[in-house]
């Protein structure tokens, strides 16, 4: 009986050690998962595909001046973004290799004349693309608005692009007021433009 008492006394520190070891393992694990969770939240999750915006929707922007750039349009004209000041501009980043961009191109081409009449300009910039391919696709889509290729990639980097299609809506003062990733519907275009034009 006395021996049994000794044993339970010996086991007590052993259990104590086990508890310490478990806590020592659990704390770093919990901390690791917490950091991973926060990091995932901050990065906006895992991208679904390289350089294609598969998550559609509006992204909040702090109204800021749109970075200026010059693009050579397929018509051979040197177009500077700031030259369009005074008009509402929809800056559309696209690529001939990007399926969602190809899908929405006919709708954009069809919508352009109506908005142009209201003082809106569309500007398409093809990124990470081959000029000949982009030009061929632009002709096929029948879009009447100016389009060009970001040959050196500076424009894409200036706008911090990680995927296309991506659209920036710029007001008459040259400030970015709305931003959408993924293709946009006719209804979204209408609501965004009516809001910007009435302001």
């Amino acid at each position: 009986m006395a021996e049994q008492d000794n044993i339970t006394q010996e086991e007590r520190p052993a259990n104590h050690r086990k508890l310490i070891a478990m806590v020592a393992v659990a704390i770093p694990l919990i901390a690791l998962f917490a950091i991973l969770g926060v990091a995932l939240g901050r990065s906006g999750g895992v991208p679904a595909g390289i350089a294609i915006n598969s998550a559609f929707g509006e992204v909040d922007v702090d109204p800021d001046m749109a970075r200026d750039f010059v693009v050579t349009t397929f018509g051979g004209q040197q177009l500077r973004l700031s030259d369009l000041r005074g008009q509402v501009v929809m800056l559309d980043f696209w690529g001939s290799w990007c399926a969602p961009c190809r899908q929405e191109a006919p709708a954009l081409a069809a919508a352009y004349p109506g908005y142009k009449a209201q003082g809106v300009e569309f500007l398409g910039v093809a990124i990470w693309d081959v000029e000949s391919e982009a030009k061929r696709f632009a002709l096929e889509s029948g879009a009447g608005y100016p389009m060009g290729v970001d040959t050196k990639g500076n424009i894409a980097i200036d706008y911090g692009l990680t995927g296309i299609p991506e659209k920036y809506f710029i007001d008459v003062d040259g400030r970015i007021v709305r931003k959408f990733v993924g293709p946009v519907s006719d209804e979204i275009l209408e609501s965004v433009f009516s809001e910007i034009l009435t302001n």
């Binding site: 991208p47 390289i50 350089a51 990470w128 050196k152 500076n154 980097i157 995927g163």
Partner: peptide, 18 residues
Amino acid sequence: PICPGETIDRSQVQLANQ
């Protein structure tokens, strides 16, 4: 930015080269 975890000296994508 489009190939997470890879620095631009390792990545082969166009954006990294640019």
